[in-house]
Design a protein around this nucleic acid. Structure first.
Length: 453
RNA sequence: GUGGGUGUAGCUCAGCGGUAGAGCGCCGGACUGUGGCUCCGGAAGUCGCGGGUUCGAACCCCGUCAUCCACCCCA
């Protein structure tokens, strides 16, 4: 039996076309993140297993890719390392370790792959990129406002107009559950059920709540709190006697007020049914929704206790993560990529003839063009001209430079624009400058007449 | 992890017990220094894999793997 030809389950190869599109999105993300003053960070793919376990909740724990200990572990099954599950926990570890070397307020971005042993589905892979921004050291709502603004900027720059940033607060949720009489031990179970309100409706959520062990009076008290799409103000009055929850409501009101002066303002929406699965969130939680994707484009929240799990002393922190693969799925389906992202890897193809001198001439021409900053591909062997044109067209190379016996005798290069079909003779001596000056695009642009000689 | 669909040529798919097919792409030619248009010709498939039923299986049955969709969960 031959070796498998496909990558491992949930993993993918990226062909040049894919890489170009990924790079385009990453470049936009990176550019926006930098404008907000975030600094780059990279961490190892592998972490010690204790670093990751117990940080993500029960579901998350199961999805961690574990690595057998080298040597004995291969027979005993013992694991000591794991592939990172997200970029937030590694950041918390780094902050704990390098606390003294980092500024009082540390803002970092990180664009790297993470791994989850999930079942693959549309927009879900076992290896995928996250684009994280996190701000460490401040409990101010200004942090949340800036994070929301940054991701809103990214999505708008990429051409998204119809996304919604759903916002909620862990302490608001806790307050509502307390108010309805759900015992604290069942808060997690209740949140999982409530998170489905959009999909299964109030009756469905009610059934699931009871199935999860929440008694009928609590369910009946709980459902109206969520089904009515309560406004923040109303919620504040309802939770006025619960100081923590009331403060959380006030915090969200502050976030909305602050966001009035950022690009996130029009996209923010309070949603009491947003829960989010990761267990380390302690405050505001956010998630980005678009109509044509069941999952989210990204999510985030405040996690004031996570760094303390490494350091023994809490440091406030808040972050937002964009899912590169999710963004790419939607952009691909909607055709949102600019045309130039999909152009080939070269600007010019230099042809070759079977006349003895052509190879040296072709390489020399390529060198001069490359020195002028032009991306050049040289057809590697003598062939019929038609084949060479066909190759250029298939490879997405716009110009073909022909230098055969005729051209050499005249000291020129024939340059053909594959998009318009037009061609002209350009002096060999000035060819590099002619290209880098953009003359190729201007003078050979489509003008109605085809194939002028 | 649960339920369902689909695996046939490079790609999209037809065939659904009786000789393996089409379109597109690819290669060659008409066109010996010009791609796209047209015409002619050609190559190409253990019909996902393993077993079973049958005189005979791409087709029916069982298993398995892959993939897609809906749940679950998430980026």
């Amino acid at each position: 039996m031959s070796a498998p030809i496909r990558p491992a389950r949930g993993m993918r190869d990226f062909l040049p076309h894919d890489v170009r599109r990924r790079d385009y999105v990453i470049r936009v993300v990176e550019d926006v993140y930098r404008r907000y003053g975030f600094q780059p960070l990279e961490t190892p793919a592998l972490e010690n297993i204790e670093t990751l376990t117990g940080k993500y909740g029960e579901e998350g724990n199961k999805l961690i890719f574990k690595v057998l200990r080298r040597g004995e572990g291969e027979t005993s099954g013992e694991t000591d390392l794991a592939l990172r599950y997200d970029l937030t926990v590694p950041l918390a570890r780094v902050v704990a370790e390098h606390r003294g070397a980092l500024p009082k307020f540390f803002k970092r971005y990180q664009i790297q792959p993470v791994w989850r042993a999930d079942r693959p589905a549309r927009g879900r892979f076992r290896e995928f990129y996250q684009c994280d921004v996190d701000a460490i050291g401040s409990a101010s709502m200004v942090v949340e406002a800036e994070l929301c603004a940054a991701v809103a900027d990214v999505l708008q720059r990429l051409g998204f107009r119809d996304f919604v940033i759903r916002v909620n607060h862990r302490l608001v949720l806790a307050g509502l559950l307390d108010h309805a009489g759900v015992p604290p031990a069942l808060h997690g179970a209740a949140l999982v059920a409530l998170d489905k309100l959009d999909k299964v409706g109030p009756d469905g959520v009610g059934n699931e709540l009871q199935a999860r062990g929440i008694d009928r009076p609590a369910v009946e008290a709980l459902l109206p709190l969520f089904a009515g799409r309560m406004e923040l103000g109303e919620l504040g009055r309802l939770l006025a006697t619960r100081p923590e929850a009331a403060a959380a409501v006030a915090g969200l009101e502050k976030l909305f007020a602050l966001s009035g002066s950022t690009s996130a303002g029009p996209y923010l929406r309070f949603d009491a049914s947003l829960a989010r699965g990761l267990s380390y969130y302690t405050g505001a939680i956010m998630e980005i929704a678009v109509p044509d994707l069941a999952g989210s484009l990204g999510g985030g929240g405040r996690y004031d206790g996570l760094i303390g799990m490494f350091l023994g002393q809490d440091i406030p922190a808040c972050g937002f993560s964009l899912g590169l693969e999710r963004i790419l799925v939607v952009m691909t389906e909607r055709g949102m990529f600019p045309a130039d992202v999909d152009t080939g890897g070269a600007d010019v193809l230099v042809t070759q003839f079977d006349d003895g001198e052509s190879a040296e001439e072709a390489l020399g021409l390529a060198r001069d063009l490359r020195e002028a900053g032009v991306r050049v591909d040289v057809y590697p062997e003598p062939d019929k001209l038609g084949k060479q044109f066909k190759y250029a067209a298939a490879a997405g190379v716009r110009h073909v430079a022909i230098m055969g016996g005729d051209e050499r005798a005249r000291g020129v290069v024939t340059v053909k624009d594959m998009t318009s079909g037009q061609q002209r003779a350009v002096p060999r001596a000035g060819i590099g400058q002619w290209f880098s000056a953009g003359a190729a695009h201007q003078e050979l642009a489509p003008s109605g007449s085809e194939d002028q000689e």
